[in-house]
């Protein structure tokens, strides 16, 4: 879907991106991660031609972006940035409607689409449509930013630290909501972050960059078993495998209770929580077994401490 072939971008004699090649398949969420100044944002901006590479080619849906008019290309690619960049003089409705209006949709279609997106991103249209950005909280503004990027239903989404400017609690909530949306819409997403936890939680694949070079590009599990070099291992952190536990859900690892068995008196945990939270529960309770319950509180199985040790296969 997106394919970068040997792209290089030079700023002031220094290569911001060097001979970088990367393929993102349709429906995949690829996270670009690396320390500040590693070239991840520049790479992102070369896809919608906000920056043109000095060498190499960028293909989106099979066509070379250089052959497309930048405006037309950009209208077919959703873009979300950290500072959100909502237009302060436009209402939430007008902000979301920017690209549909550029594409000259008719009014009825725009109205329906904006309402649909606000519902999708968890904003009640009747309340939020007519608000101005200054009347929104950070989390709400970020939701509008996502809705705006999705407005014209672009197949490709570029996200540059979209949840970087909100508090940790809101960020976690936004990540969960975004994952739900992404599982439904199956966009091809290129996502820039410097937060390893966020990368682990959202990605189908992770690309680690340093000084403009792509060091390793693989599924997250591969980084546990085979980090490319000490820099990668170091950057992802010694607790990387613990972070990886947040990709696993309790319900996928619990053993079911037999119907005759009585409910054992164990500490309880919800089946939709992650294995990372389960680990925390094991530590805090001191028990080596947990009772897994559904959201309604009905017991569905039990979780053994050793289920945490199931190996990651890269």
């Amino acid at each position: 879907m997106i394919s970068l072939r040997n792209i290089t971008k030079i700023y002031g004699g220094r290569a911001a991106v060097s001979n970088l090649s990367l393929e993102v398949s349709e429906g995949e969420l690829c996270v670009l991660i690396g320390p500040s100044g590693c070239g991840k944002s520049t790479t992102l901006r070369m896809i919608n031609r906000m920056v043109d590479p000095d060498q190499g080619t960028v293909l989106v849906s099979g066509s070379n972006v250089k052959s497309l008019r930048p405006e037309a290309l950009r209208r077919s690619i959703g873009y979300v940035i950290q500072s959100i960049g909502l237009f302060p003089h436009m209402t939430v409705f007008e902000n979301v409607a920017v690209v549909p209006r550029l594409l000259k949709w008719n009014t009825g279609r725009i109205k329906d689409r904006v309402a649909e997106l606000l519902v999708l991103t968890g904003l009640e249209p009747a309340i939020y449509s007519r608000r101005y950005p200054r009347e929104l909280s950070g989390g709400e503004a970020q939701r509008v930013g996502v809705a705006r990027a999705l407005a014209a239903d672009p197949p490709v989404l570029l996200m540059d630290e979209p949840f970087g400017a909100v508090d940790p609690l809101t960020r976690s909530k936004l990540q969960a909501e975004f994952l739900t949306i992404q599982r439904r819409l199956k966009k091809t997403v290129l996502f820039v972050t410097h937060d390893v936890e966020e990368a682990v939680r959202l990605s189908d694949k992770i690309a680690v960059l340093r000084d403009g070079f792509l060091i390793q590009y693989d599924v997250p599990e591969a980084f546990i078993t085979a980090p490319a070099d000490p820099f990668v291992a170091n950057f992802l952190g010694s607790d990387f495998s613990l972070k990886m536990l947040s990709r696993r859900l309790v319900k996928d690892y619990c053993a079911s209770l037999s119907p005759s068995e009585s409910v054992p008196p164990l500490p309880r945990i919800n089946d939709k929580t992650t294995m990372k939270e389960a680990l925390s529960r094991f530590v805090s309770s001191g028990s080596n077994r947990l009772l897994v319950e559904s959201s309604s509180g009905a017991p569905v199985g039990q979780l053994e401490l050793r289920s945490l040790l199931k190996p990651f296969r890269g």
Partner: peptide, 18 residues
């Protein structure tokens, strides 16, 4: 005018005139 707003306006596909 915030330069980030101008930047994102371009990234959303507005022409210079728009």
């Amino acid at each position: 005018v915030d330069s980030r707003e101008v930047d994102i306006a371009g990234a959303m596909g507005m022409t210079a005139g728009q």
